[in-house]
Design a protein around this nucleic acid. Structure first.
Length: 111
DNA sequence: CCATTGACTTAAG
DNA sequence: CCTTAAGCCAATG
């Protein structure tokens, strides 16, 4: 069993804390972890998140609210399907009213 | 060990 | 909003 880096672990922690019907961005998580420009690593962490059962990676999208990682969910429609099931409207692989559903760990956790 | 890639972001035009 | 360019860093070839 590979022991994940602290960075990955923190990413998973934050992602797990995302409330239902809310979404956040890779950059927001990266920023919360102190590396605002390591958003790619957050993406890589999500890539490795397949081994983690309770990491709702579908709630993490890019800064435009685009479902960039939907193709990594086994089925291409899995991600947007999960989001819709939580009340997040998705159109053309993009989250509608993204800012309205946006959940910023900086703002919500570090008050 | 070097080169390329990638679920990204920001800044500037 | 779109395009370029640059930064970031693990994983892969």
């Amino acid at each position: 069993m590979p022991q994940q880096s602290d960075f990955f672990k923190d990413v998973y922690d934050v992602v797990r804390l995302i409330p239902e019907g809310r979404v956040t961005s890779y950059g927001a998580i990266a920023k919360y972890l102190g590396s605002a420009r390591s958003s790619r690593m957050v993406g890589w962490a999500m890539n490795a998140a397949h081994s983690i059962p309770d990491v709702p990676a579908h709630r993490v999208v890019n800064r435009k609210g685009l479902l960039t990682g939907k193709m990594h969910f086994g089925e291409p429609d899995r991600m947007e399907n999960l989001l819709k099931a939580e009340g997040v409207l998705v159109k053309n692989d993009k989250i509608i009213d993204f800012e309205k559903h946006f959940w910023d760990p900086m703002q919500e956790l570090v008050l």
